[in-house]
Amino acid sequence: MNGPGVWRLALPLGLAQLMFFAAPLLILLGTSLATDEHLREGSLRAWREVLGDSFHIQSVVNTLRLGALTVLATLLLAVPLALVHMAAGPRLKRAILIAAVLPLLTSVVVRTFSWIVILGREGVINSTLIATGLSATPVALLQTEPGLILALTQIEMPLMLLPLIAATARIDPSLLDASTSLGASLARTLSRVVLPLALPGLIAGSTLVFASAATAFISQSVIGGGRLNYLPALVWQQAMVVFDWPLAAAMALTLMGSVLMVVGALNLLGRGARHA
């Protein structure tokens, strides 16, 4: 498989990528550097407006923070679940896997709107809080960052859990036996054996969750609402309502660039860990 012609196998995908990814990206770049979408005149106005405006910079920061916090929250829940999955018998294993995949079978839109029902002022959480006397007045959850992160954590959970379980399931159970019989405590076994071996899954999951949460247009606008500004909704608004395509293009490229930067950093981290 190392013959000089092997690269040709990648040709169809390469061409498709060129056509459906690289070309639109170039058009996007061109649009961002023009006065309008007809690309007749060049201008840096859009970029000045994105990068020179604290509102837009704040939106970039908000978007990245949302991705990061969602990754953190999914990690916090997925890691223990993956450990339970590892220790479980075949039936519980199957149940966990089904529970992990099940959310993927309903559309993001449905999941997002269900979160309105849960987080709303008269929603499930607030009704419970008030009925149990834990709170006298409804707690603001909908249209707050914590509420949005809570919802995204559920919505994005499969993207974290599946790669993580794939990684932990590959860990030979006798490694855990070896560790305990060598006198390691559970904490040592987890930190020295399980975690390092699950790291590729953790990084893959974090990458997916980050990219997905940072660009979760529907959840961000429906659950986050108008007081929280994230780039995807701003891109949509500029492109579809205001018809300022250069600004939309510059914002879209900013979103893509900043998400790619984080994803790249995560990958470096993963590569570093593998060589450590």
Binding site: D172, S174, L175, D177, A178, S179, T180, S181, L182, G183, A184, S185, R192, V193
Partner: peptide, 15 residues
């Protein structure tokens, strides 16, 4: 870990 028992596994189980 406290039994004073060492074990060598069929699959070696090296980390």
């Amino acid at each position: 870990g406290k039994r004073g028992v060492g074990i060598v596994f069929q699959s070696y189980a090296l980390f």
